[in-house]
Structures are given as C-alpha cells and as structure tokens.
Amino acid sequence: MVMHEHTAKAFDVDLQELTRMVAEMGGLAEKQIADAVDALVRRDTESAARVVVADVALDDLQREIEERAVLTIARRQPMAVDLREIVGGMRVAGDLERIGDMAKNIGKRVSELSGDFHPQKLIRGVEHMSTLVLAQLKQVLDAYGSHDLDNALAVWKGDKEVDAMCTSLFRELLTYMMEDPRNITFCIHLMFCAKNIERMGDHATNIAETVYYMIEGRPIADKRPKGDTTVFAALDAVSAGE
C-alpha cells in the first residue's frame, strides 16, 4: 500500500528517525554477534572484552528509542498503522537489546575457555549456527526497514535449522562430558554460547512477528515450526546412561 505523507510533515520526520535508530541498533547488534563469535573461535580474550564494553551502546540506543517513541505518542496521538509503527519500533529495539546482552555473555565466556581441550569441530558448529542466525537477523531487519511481509514470514518459518543444530551440539557435548569430567567446564561454557545464539534466533523470529503485526495489524495465526528438542535429548541421554 502506498503511504502518503502526513499533513504534519514533522510527524513523518519523527517516524523516519525512529526507524533509522532501530536500523542503527540492528547494525550494531549484528556486529556484536559477529565479533563475539569471532573472539570465541580465535579464543581472543582482548576482542571479547571489547564486545562486553560495546554493549553499552546498544543499551543507550534502546533507551533513546523508547524515549523518542513515548514522546511521539504523547505529541502526535498516532492511530492505526502509525501507532503500530511506533510500538513495533519499541519492541524490535527490545529484542535487539536482548540480542546484545547475549553477545556480551558470549564475550564474557571466552576468557573462561582456557585449557587444552578445544575440539575445533564443536567450535565450528557454534560458528556455523551464528552464521545462520546472522543471516536471519539481517533478513528480518531488511523486512523491518522495507515493510516486507514475505521476508518477515520467511524468517519466522526459518528458525528450525538453528534449533536443530543446537540440539545436536548439545548431544555431542554431553558425550564429551561423560567421557572425561575435565571437559565439563569448557563444554558447559560452549553450550551456553550455543544456547545464546539459539536465543538470538528466537529474538529474530520475535522481530519477524512484530514486523507482521506492524503491516497486518494482527498477530500471526499459525503455529511456528519448532526444532529445539534439547529437553528431550537430555532425557534420552539420561536414560541411555542408566
């Protein structure tokens, strides 16, 4: 649907600025994920520490977006599509802030991953998960910026693969931990890193839901396909060990 400009031009400026700030936040969040995972792969504690510090920028931007959104609501009393645009912007900013927290958490764990036991295959697995999640995040941020319903729905449906990878990684780490208790510290940290990335994917699907709501004015009616079965995997492993 072609949108005309508002009679009050300043309202358009307010909305554009809000969208721009959310997009900026999205760019920062993407960079944080990439940097955190890069630090993990290379076990580079210095760049991991930089990721931890840089998270403040995301927190600040989220606060600014919320203030701006509240001010715009108070000043313009937006209706229908405009109101959804503003509420949507706030929600997306919230998801991006959480994604930032998870990247920061990965950064914190890098320094804990000392020791000799570092199966590159597993770390590559986490890296591959992050590549998938980054692609999801990029696609959903594009969908947000261009109000693209198809792209949003594709992201919403595409989270399954990341979930499945997280489950299989979990199984593998479990076997390493059962083999030698000295591996446990490393494995637990790596598992948390993988879980963080899997949660980032969940936030990307949240954003897809928000984009859908912004465009359509109603929530997605379908059930989302789920691939994360870590809970059942754990039960399987326990019963297998008995």
């Binding site: 005309h4 400009e5 508002h6 009679t7 309202f11 937006p78 229908a80 599509v81 405009d82």
Partner: peptide
C-alpha cells in the same frame, strides 16, 4: 486509514 492517521492533503 489516511484520514485517521492524518494523511489527508
């Protein structure tokens, strides 16, 4: 939609 969101020119 245009009217309630203030988009009438």
């Amino acid at each position: 939609q245009d009217y309630i969101t203030g988009r009438f020119g």
